[in-house]
Simulated scan of single mutants.
Amino acid sequence: MFAPALQGHRPIRERLLARLQAGRIRGSLLFAGPEGIGKRRVALELAQREICFRRTACGACEGCRLFEGDDLPYELPNLLRITPEGKAGVIRIDQIREGLDSANQPRFSRGVIEWASLAPPPNCHRWILVEEAHRLNESSANILLKTLEEPPQDTHFILVTHRPEAVLQTIRSRCERIPFAPLAGPEAWEVALRHGWTDTDRARWSALGEGSLRFLEEDVFRRAEAQVEAWLALLGGAAFSEAAGPLLPEKDGGVAQGEQLRQPLELLLRLLADLARIRAGAPPALAPWGERLAALAAGPLDPRPGQEAALEALRHLPRNLSPEPLLREVALALRTA
C-alpha cells in the first residue's frame, strides 16, 4: 500500500493512510520538518495511491507514471500543485485566485478556489499541495485562508514547509501540523546510491545532508562542500578576498542572490556549533572536517560573535541587501572573535 521507491517516514504514512481510509483526515494539513527529507513526496503518495490502478502507489502502472520524474505537472486528475515562482521565489495571489503562471498564461484552467470546489474523480479526493508554503506572500496567504477555514467536502490542502514559523499564524492555526524528522542515515544513503553516488563521498555527503536529500545533485553538493572549506579558511585567518569566492551568490542563478546566502550562513552556524561541541568533549556533527575543527577549537576563537552576526544576516535576507558587504560583515565578526 506504499510507494516502493519512497524511503522513510513509514509510521507517518501508515497513520495518514489509516485515517484517510476511516474518513478521519483533516481538510488542511501542515507538513513541517527539515528541508529535503521527503515531506512533499509523502504528500504526493496520498494522491498517487488513488490514481494507481492497484490503489497502492505501485510505481509501475500508467496511473503512477503520471507522478514520475522531477518535472511533475502542476495539475493531475486529483492533484493541484502550487509552487513558488520567479527569482524572488514567492507564491503570488494570482496563483491562488486565477491559476496563472509568471508569463500570465494559463497553466491550469481554474484557480485554486474554483478547482477545490469541483467534484473529485470517482473514488478519489481532491488534493491541493502548496509547496514551500512559507513563500506565500501576505495577499496570497489571506486569500488562501478563506478556503482553508472550511475546505469543500473531499478536498484536502497539504502545506509543506521547512520554515513553519514563517507561515502566517492564522494559516498555521487552521491546519493540523504533521511533524517530520530527518531520514535515518542508511535511508538517505540508499536514495543517494540510486542517484549514482559512491562510497567515496558518503561521509561528507551524509554529514552535510543531516538525513536530508538536499545534495542529491552533485553540483549542489560540491558547492556546499566548497562553502564549508571557505568558512574554515576564514576561521583560520584567511583574507576575505582570497577565500570567500564560494560563499558569494551566483549572479545568473535562478534564485534571488539574498536567498542564495541562506545556505552558506547556515553552514557557518553548523561549523561554529561544532566548535562548541568539541570544546565540550562531544564529537562534531561535521565529522569529515573534524581535524580542522579540532585545531580551531584548541585556539582562542570565540564562536559567539560569529553566531550573532550570522543570525542577524539571516534575519536581513528578505530585505535583499547586497551580498558581499553582508558576508564581509560576518567574516569580520569571525576575525574579531
Rank of each mutant, 00 (worst) to 15 (best):
L80R: 12
L248S: 05
I82R: 02
A276D: 03
A244N: 05
A233Y: 02
C175M: 05
S102Y: 06
C64D: 05
A192Q: 06
E138H: 15
I51S: 00
P106K: 10
A238G: 04
T161Y: 02
R26H: 12
A184C: 00
L144W: 02
L267Q: 12
L334H: 06
R54Y: 03
E98I: 05
A184V: 06
F53R: 10
P122Q: 07
R222D: 13
E217N: 08
L234I: 09
A166V: 00
E176T: 12
Q260Y: 14
Q257C: 14
E98Q: 13
E225R: 08
L314N: 12
A133I: 04
P122F: 14
G299Q: 06
R335I: 02
R163H: 14
Q169F: 05
D302L: 10
L168F: 12
E312W: 01
L269F: 00
R13D: 04
T170R: 08
P288Q: 04
D219P: 09
Q153A: 14
I178Q: 06
S102V: 14
S241I: 02
E250A: 15
R107M: 11
Q257D: 15
Q95K: 14
Y74W: 13
A192V: 06
R135C: 13
L327K: 11
L44R: 08
A294S: 13
I178Y: 04
N78Q: 11
D274T: 00
L30V: 09
E62T: 05
A119Q: 11
P246K: 01
E229C: 01
W127Y: 15
R194Y: 00
S102Q: 15
F108S: 09
A43F: 12
L248R: 01
L261R: 01
L6R: 04
T147I: 14
H134S: 07
E312M: 03
L183Q: 00
C64L: 05
S173D: 08
W189E: 03
I278E: 02
L148G: 03
H134Q: 10
L261C: 14
R222L: 15
L183V: 00
Q227M: 12
L301M: 07
I12A: 07
H9P: 09
A88I: 00
T161D: 05
E85M: 09
P249T: 12
L208V: 08
E187T: 06
A60W: 12
A181P: 02
E98W: 13
V330A: 10
T161M: 08
V228S: 01
G86S: 07
H9T: 07
F240T: 11
H9K: 10
L144Q: 02
L271R: 02
R335W: 10
E210A: 13
R107L: 15
R126L: 10
P11D: 08
E35H: 11
Y74A: 10
I278D: 03
T170N: 06
H162F: 07
A298D: 11
C52L: 05
K39G: 02
V130H: 09
L275V: 11
N137T: 10
A181V: 06
L72W: 12
H156W: 11
L118D: 01
A166M: 03
R24F: 03
P318L: 11
L17K: 05
F221N: 13
Q257S: 15
R81C: 09
F240L: 09
L248I: 07
C175F: 02
G8I: 09
N142S: 14
E312V: 00
R15N: 07
A298Y: 03
H162L: 03
G253M: 11
D101N: 15
P264F: 02
H134G: 04
